[in-house]
């Protein structure tokens, strides 16, 4: 219980820090980016200018603390300002359209890659002397060294352009809408396969390598020798004795890896013009839509923090030592 409380406090605190970084960042930048942008974007509506001024702390009549307070109040009311590129739409409304796509695609792909990567890692650690294990390990060391977006480009080139088996991009074909029901869902799945495969395959190596190394460490433990000496079945040794212990550090190592994996996934969306948060981030960068850019950063960060929190809870359920606060 103390562990749970600690993790909850940490979650709240980390979100608070993310909010603060988000607030400070534009105010830290050298020069005066806000004015440059306002000047760059001729004919900007006054409300958009206000939005930028607020975002950059150009409301010079207010002290920084007042600005900070206003910022927190605004965010708590779901007010993230006005988007420049989608003017006069509110940032929150723009973002809300992209979120489900990203959560759907990235969520499924990440869970799949974690499951497959973990299973594969367990398998190659168990049979670590075989040539096949070595080959799999080498293959994923290689794949892991490529930027996701390039891997995406290659798949698009070969499986969408050269051989038009899959669509080049987008989340569903333009001809179907929610009204089409099953056809709409089918189209979504069809469009999600290729980007999903990129994210799954590219991030799989991470989970696989982590669990493999954990697994090899665990396999050298005395309790594995005891399990063998006791005459337990291979499956019980592999799963209940080795893998269950090897997965624990893997889940707590989720924090770092997930932040990295999500970065790659965002760029994958750009390659596939997938209408999620990553593609929107790309557009925001290109159109210098700073209010939107910051909102996206905030959302991704909060998303990662919440995923970490879930991992923390999961590990509490799986590790009796953590439940008792003994570790």
């Amino acid at each position: 219980m103390r562990y749970f409380l600690r993790r909850t406090m940490w979650l709240i605190f980390a979100i608070f820090v993310a909010l603060t970084i988000n607030f400070i960042l534009p105010r830290l930048m050298p020069g005066d980016p806000a004015m440059i942008i306002i000047n760059q974007l001729d004919g900007l509506q006054p409300q958009a200018i206000d939005s930028i001024r607020a975002a950059f702390g150009l409301e010079t009549d207010k002290s920084i603390f007042v600005q900070y307070w206003d910022y927190l109040v605004n965010i708590s009311q779901g007010d993230l300002g006005v988007s420049i590129s989608h003017y006069p739409a509110k940032v929150w409304d723009v973002l809300a359209k992209a979120l489900p796509w990203t959560i759907g695609l990235m969520g499924i792909a990440t869970v799949l890659s974690f499951i497959f990567g973990t299973m594969l890692g367990i398998a190659i650690a168990w049979k670590r002397k075989s040539k096949v294990s070595d080959a799999i390990l080498g293959l994923f060391l290689f794949i892991r060294s490529f930027p996701y977006f390039w891997f995406g480009l290659i798949l698009v080139y070969f499986f969408a352009f050269k051989n038009p088996w899959f669509p080049l991009g987008g989340a569903h074909s333009i001809s179907v809408t929610t009204a089409d029901g099953w056809a709409y869902i089918k189209s979504i799945i069809y469009h999600g396969l290729l980007p999903g495969a990129v994210i799954t395959i590219s991030s799989l190596g991470y989970w696989m390598l982590t669990i493999r190394n954990n697994m090899i460490n665990v396999l050298a433990e005395d309790y594995i020798t005891v399990a063998k000496a006791k005459g337990l079945s291979i499956n019980r040794i592999k799963n209940t004795y080795a893998a269950r212990n090897a997965i624990l550090p893997s889940i707590s190592g989720f924090a770092m890896a997930f932040g990295f994996v999500i970065g790659g996934s965002l760029v994958t969306e750009m390659v596939f013009s997938y209408p999620g948060v990553g593609f929107m981030l790309f557009q925001a960068v290109q159109q210098q839509d700073y209010p939107l850019l910051q909102a996206i950063f905030l959302f991704i960060t909060v998303g990662v923090l919440i995923s970490n929190f879930i991992a923390d809870i999961l590990i509490m359920l799986l590790d009796p030592r953590i439940r008792d606060g003994a570790k």
Binding site: D222, Y223, T225, K230, R244, N245
Partner: peptide, 28 residues
């Protein structure tokens, strides 16, 4: 059978004592 040097490392940390005593019986 054998008793190992370090009992701390010889017991599976995520399984109850009962499970670790029961599984050896079930195996044999």
């Amino acid at each position: 059978s054998m008793v190992f040097q370090s009992a701390m490392n010889a017991l599976n940390p995520v399984l109850k004592i009962s499970d670790q005593l029961v599984d050896v019986m079930q195996a044999h």
